[in-house]
Design a protein around this nucleic acid. Sequence first.
DNA 1: TATTGTTATACTCTATAACTATA
DNA 2: TATAGTTATAGAGTATAACAATA
Lengths: 148, 148
Amino acid sequence: MNTLADPSISLEMTVSELSLAIGQLLRRLRAESNPDGLSWSQTVALSRLEKMGPMTTADLARAESVKPQSMGATLAELEREGLVTRNPHPTDGRQVLFTLTDEGVEARRKRSAAKQKWLLAAMANLDPDERQTLLTAAALIKRLGEAE
Amino acid sequence: MNTLADPSISLEMTVSELSLAIGQLLRRLRAESNPDGLSWSQTVALSRLEKMGPMTTADLARAESVKPQSMGATLAELEREGLVTRNPHPTDGRQVLFTLTDEGVEARRKRSAAKQKWLLAAMANLDPDERQTLLTAAALIKRLGEAE
DNA sequence: TATTGTTATACTCTATAACTATA
DNA sequence: TATAGTTATAGAGTATAACAATA
């Protein structure tokens, strides 16, 4: 009589539970932000640039499921703060490649600390098994977010 | 030596991966929203009222890690649409209890369908094991979001 | 024509501050 | 005083629409 074995119940319940849970955690993370730290969207853009190397506005927008205009605003702000620089695309004159500056790398490491510090502390109370579950889940969630 | 066995490396990596993944999934979910559907914050408020029964503005705000004023705005909008009603608290004249209307139950079920339908479809491609991981992770994420 | 990016404008969500009513 | 809620205002993030430049 294992209700978890019913795929439809499990699926809808998981969808609902997961949506509510991640929404709450994200709001919680935002609430923990540092006054002179990086905003969420800035942190995300910097992280992705650091991980993937130079990228265009459109690629970053696609990667984060936002419109190019929205990503453009985030990048313009990061550029004003000297955390990214823009370079022309070598072959396509329309495109602009954004690259992390040294200061951007530093900022990503230091100024996003407040948020992550909170989550780090919260996760420190979990069992190793639970942390492993979250790491596995993170990869799955990433796949869902990227899914067509 | 196994780097995954180093708790600090695993922990930081998990924090980073998890934050990025849930941020992207949530933006993705928001992007899938229906033009005449419910907004994310409305869906969340209705879901919680449905699950927990009548609640006050302050309780809902605490549950979702937002300020009472923010939750107040969401509830006012839901009230204007007839999806929740307000009732006086039986013993404390300051408090207001919000309750789902029948129309609110219906709306939660139908109008949030667009978003959840997308996630449901995406999750249908996962293995049962992977779905179980997400369900377990949802509970963990919920605990993190509620953590002091 | 299609794509990249920009500018202009508006909406949603959330925050802070100041206020009223009740405990 | 302290708490629950409201009103007013502002900022961040995102969206749509209209445009320019390039492919």
